[in-house]
């Protein structure tokens, strides 16, 4: 932008330093700054401001400070290279793991085939589709890995075809064989855990190494108002808790086999959310209802979070407690209230 000639600026300062118009009052200036003045009045105020440097200063000061996200941006920028390199490293690890697992599978299969009798090999070869079809599927199966291809070339053609059909189900075209293989439960216990009644579906053992993909998805799902799924109390020493669809609190002392209704003294509100940490239980509900029990539901205490002199009055739709002291809840107005001292004091974010 080309600057104005200095002589113009100087003349400008002289011409616009004194206004004959009356100064707008604080109300008008506030409404001007907040862009809520009617058009005609706004024009009049603007006319005055264009001639009165003092009112321009007042208007400039009267604007609410902007909380610029500069610090956050710097943080994001400073983390960006770390994240980028982490992603590259993760990709490399995935590729290496994929290649190594592919090699091991091929090696094991090749050894197994070598141990089989020639008769069995012939019969299996006869049952396979013709070579051109096999070649196509083998090509599809090995498209992603040149190492897999090299390994496959080391064995006989027909045997190779069978060999390559094993990892093939990883592609979308492949199907039933791999599906059957991977959906087979590792143990009857896991089977019971993953396919049992809805009551147990939400309480998988998180420290179990064989946690299914569904469980993983559940554990990373965003927190939503919990109405029917029991809390993830991983320690069987403590009772399990849940809320039913009527907003009633339920407790199980036998790891979910049976459930009993728990009434909180003095509470008439519909309950929406629950969180447990060991023996500590937090329950939230309509119209700011928030209760805490530190003895597995033996005694309940109503918590009245307040910040800046304002009591909580909105529905508590989600509660999360990382420890007995540190936790937060979300209200129906999407306000996040947090505590770091077990609910004695709260701060609104």
């Amino acid at each position: 932008m080309k600057p104005l000639p200095k002589i113009v600026q100087w003349q400008f300062q002289k011409a616009l330093s004194v206004s004959a118009l009356p100064h707008p009052d604080a109300d008008q200036l506030t409404a001007f700054v907040e862009l809520s003045l009617p058009r005609a009045e706004r024009s009049a105020v603007l006319e005055h401001l264009s001639q009165c440097s003092e009112c321009r200063q007042v208007a400039a000061f009267a604007e609410a400070p902007v909380s610029l996200p500069a610090v956050e941006l710097r943080n994001i920028r400073s983390w960006r290279p770390v994240l980028a390199w982490s992603m590259v490293s993760a990709c490399l690890l995935i590729v290496v793991a994929f290649v190594l697992s592919g090699r091991n599978q091929h090696k094991e299969l090749a050894e197994a085939i070598q141990q089989q009798s020639p008769a069995a090999q012939n019969s299996r070869a006869a049952s396979l589709p013709d070579s051109s079809e096999v070649g196509t599927s083998a090509k599809a199966g090995t498209g992603r890995s040149s190492n897999s291809k090299k390994t496959a070339e080391a064995v006989q053609h027909q045997v190779m075809a069978y060999d390559m059909r094993q990892p093939a189900p990883k592609t979308p075209q492949s199907g039933a064989m791999e599906k059957d293989k991977f959906t087979q439960p590792a143990s009857p216990e896991l089977m019971a855990e993953t396919t049992s009644s809805p009551k147990q579906a939400g309480t998988p053992s998180r420290d179990d190494a064989t946690t299914s993909a569904n469980d993983m998805r559940e554990s990373f799902a965003p927190s939503v108002p919990n109405t029917s799924v029991p809390t993830s109390n991983i320690d069987d020493r403590y009772p399990r808790w849940t809320l039913n669809s009527d907003g009633i609190l339920l407790r199980s002392l036998d790891t979910g086999a049976s459930w009993q209704k728990i009434s909180i003294p003095g509470n008439a509100a519909l309950l929406h959310s629950i969180a447990t940490v060991g023996a500590d239980v937090w329950v939230g509900g309509a119209s700011g209802a928030l209760y805490h029990s530190a003895d597995e539901g033996g005694h309940w205490m109503q918590v009245n979070p307040a910040t800046s002199g304002k009591l909580l009055s909105d529905d508590v739709i989600s509660i999360e407690f990382a420890t007995a002291q540190r936790g937060k809840f979300v209200t129906s107005k999407q306000e996040v209230w947090a505590t770091a001292d077990g609910g004695r004091t709260w701060s609104k974010k």
Binding site: D25, A26, D27, Q28, L29, T30, A31, V33, E34, S36, L37, E54, Q57, V58, A59, A60, F61, A62, E63, A64
Partner: peptide, 20 residues
């Protein structure tokens, strides 16, 4: 205060006037 803008904004304006 006449309620033309927010009370908080008005307080800020009054303070700015005093400062100037």
């Amino acid at each position: 205060y006449a309620g033309r803008g927010s009370l908080e904004g008005w307080l800020r304006t009054v303070m700015a006037q005093e400062f100037v």
